[in-house]
Design a protein around this nucleic acid. Sequence first.
DNA 1: AAGGGTTTTTGATAAATGTCAAAAATGGAG
DNA 2: CTCCATTTTTGACATTTATCAAAAACCCTT
Lengths: 187, 187
Amino acid sequence: MQQLLSHIQQYSPLTTDTQKTLPDCFEKIILGKNELLLKEGQICRYLYFLETGALRGFYNLDGKEITHWFGFEKDFVTSFHSFITGEPAVENIQLLEGSILWAISKDTLTELLNKHHEIERLVRIAYEKYYIRLEERFVNAQFKTAKELYENLLRQTPYIIERVPLGFIASYLGISQETLSRIRSKF
Amino acid sequence: MQQLLSHIQQYSPLTTDTQKTLPDCFEKIILGKNELLLKEGQICRYLYFLETGALRGFYNLDGKEITHWFGFEKDFVTSFHSFITGEPAVENIQLLEGSILWAISKDTLTELLNKHHEIERLVRIAYEKYYIRLEERFVNAQFKTAKELYENLLRQTPYIIERVPLGFIASYLGISQETLSRIRSKF
DNA sequence: AAGGGTTTTTGATAAATGTCAAAAATGGAG
DNA sequence: CTCCATTTTTGACATTTATCAAAAACCCTT
C-alpha cells in the first residue's frame, strides 16, 4: 500500500488528509501464475494497481489469442473500455507471474473523484501519461518493420523479453511467433 | 463558442458561473486550406477546439509524410505529446479545409483546472473518451488486413473518405496508397 | 536424472503488401 | 472551356511476413 501511495504522488501530491482515506478504498488481492483476473464477457468493475508481478491482456480473434498489452510492477491495469463504459469486456486479464494487486471499485473511485479535487487531478494526469504511452506504441506499431519493433522492445522495455513467453511478445508486437523467432536468431 | 460550450457539456455539466468564465479563455482562429497550425520543432502551447473544418497531423519519416490522425468538427486537437510534456513537437498540423478554431493556452487551461474541480473532471472524462478511441484504433490497425481497415473506415467514419485525399488516408491506415487504391477498385 | 508437455526454432511455401514507374483521371485557375 | 498541376490508378516486380508442419530445445514434475 505504501508503494501505491508513493507511486501515485509522482503524478501529483496529495494532502495527508486524503492520503489517510486512501488505504481503506483499496482491497489487497493475491493471485497465482496463470489465474485470470478478468474473463471476457464480464463487466470489469475494478481498477487494479499491480504492486509486484506481471500480467497480460488478451482477446480471441479467429480462435487465436491476441496479447495486446502487458502490466508490470507499479502499473495501473484494468479492462479500460469495460471499466469506463460499463460494457462487457472483450478481453481477458491473466497473471503471468504470481502477483500482489490492490483493487479499487469503480463506485469507490467515483466517490473519491467527487470528493477530492486533488484525486481528480491525479487521475487526469495519470491519463495523460497513459495516453502518451499508448500514442507512442501506436505510431511504432504502425510504421515500423518487425525487426525495428523488436529492437525498440529490447531498448525500451527489455524486462518484457526476459519475463514473457515469446508467443505473447509476438502478438503484442503484431507479428507471428515464427517471424519473431527468426529475427531474434540474427543477433 | 456556443458550439464549444454545449459540446463539452456532453462530457460533464458546468455551473453557469464557470460557463461565463470560459469564453474569455479561448481565442478565435480562422485559417485557410493547407495552412499550418503547428510546425514540427515548435513547442505546442495551445489546445484547439475545431468548430468547423478539417485538419491532419503528420510527421516525416525517411522523407515521407506520415499522416497519423485527422481532426474534424467538434474535435479537440493539439500535438498532444508536445502540449503535455512541453517538448518540441515531432509533428505538423495542417488544415485540410478552411477552419474555425478556438485556442486555449496551456497556462490558461492550467489555471482553469486549478480553480474549478468541474473543469478538471470534464478534462478527465474527455481523456477517457479519447483514450478509448485511440485504443480501438490501435487494436484495429495492428490486427486487421488492409481490406478490413478500409471497410471499417467506410463503416465508422465515411466522412474521412469523402473529405480527405487518398494518399493521406492510406498512411493514416498504415498502408501504401497503391494498395488502398487497389482495394477500393474492388467495390 | 528421466519423461512429458510446452515453447521455440527451422524449413518450405504462399499470401499480402510495398516499391517504382508510367498512364489516366480529376479538378482548379485563368 | 482548356491547360496544367495534382491525385489516383494500373502494371510489373520485389520484399516482407504469414502459414503450416515438423524438429529441437526447454522446463517442470516426479
